[in-house]
Amino acid sequence: MANWGSSLLMKLSLMLSLAVVAVANNGDFHLFYFVQQWLGSYCDQHGEKCCYPPTGKPSADFSIYGLWPYYNDGSFPYNCGSGNFNEALLKPMQDSLRREWPSFTCPQIGRKFWVHEWNKHGTCSKSILGEVAYFKAALALKNKVNLLRALTSAGIHPNNQLYPLRSIKQAIARGTGFHPWVVCNRNSQGTSQIWQVAMCVDRTGNKLINCPFVPKGQGDCETKIKFPSFY
């Protein structure tokens, strides 16, 4: 009887622990990470093949990669239920999305990229931003955060040269007023190169803020990284 009671107590304790974890993980998000990527680095990474969107080769610039909600411990929610994605709602901004938030995968997935981003990330912020507001916020942030201008103004150009990571971060901070985090990948020769740049945004999706933490699972760049030419 004592053993049965002890076993039951252990099971109840385990269930309570799991419930606490579930509550903690289902808390509301803390901020957004607005992420942009450089096409040259995406297409030049080992084993990757690129395809231009139907609109053709875009002009040389960073493009939107995502607007991702995060918890205050650096983890992030995803796939938060049915998103009920309605493409018709995005028609007024479709040209802007094609220009600023294109997909470069092969085969081309086009609008499916937006569907994916909304279902995986946007649904986790819909208590604050509905579908239209979510995509409008991303486009407005892209207009506000001009990474290429910040870098070139500091003499850092996409010319296949190596630049100190510190200088890249400082240039973006000066150009935007806020500190970024930078994600690198490696090209086919194994060289570390700038790939993604993210800025922190408050829960409204409108106001840039300084990042309180680095997201979990993000790899470090080398102290000097390549800024490859646009693909």
Rank of each mutant, 00 (worst) to 15 (best):
F85G: 06
S103H: 15
R174Y: 11
Q196F: 05
S41F: 01
N3A: 13
A88P: 01
M15A: 15
G217F: 02
F76K: 05
Y52I: 11
R111D: 11
G219Q: 12
C51D: 10
F76M: 07
L8Y: 03
M15T: 10
S103W: 14
N146Y: 08
C106R: 04
Y52H: 13
M199L: 11
K216H: 09
D73C: 08
L97E: 07
I109V: 10
L8W: 08
S229A: 14
E222K: 09
L89K: 11
I156A: 03
N79L: 10
G66A: 08
L39A: 12
V35E: 05
C211I: 07
Q189Y: 12
P107I: 13
A133K: 14
P102E: 08
S75C: 07
C80A: 04
L89G: 05
K49A: 11
W195M: 04
L9H: 04
C50D: 00
W68Q: 06
S153Y: 05
F178S: 06
G205Y: 03
S63A: 12
E48V: 10
K169W: 04
G47V: 02
P164R: 04
V183C: 02
I109Q: 08
S17Q: 11
N3T: 14
P164A: 05
Q170H: 14
L141G: 00
C50H: 09
G190S: 09
V197E: 03
P77N: 08
L208V: 07
L151P: 02
A171R: 03
Y33G: 00
C200R: 01
R174L: 12
N26V: 08
P58T: 09
I172N: 05
M15L: 15
I172C: 01
W4R: 03
K49R: 14
G56H: 01
K216P: 06
Q108R: 09
C184M: 08
A60V: 08
T176I: 14
S127K: 11
T105A: 15
G205R: 03
V214M: 14
G205C: 06
T223R: 13
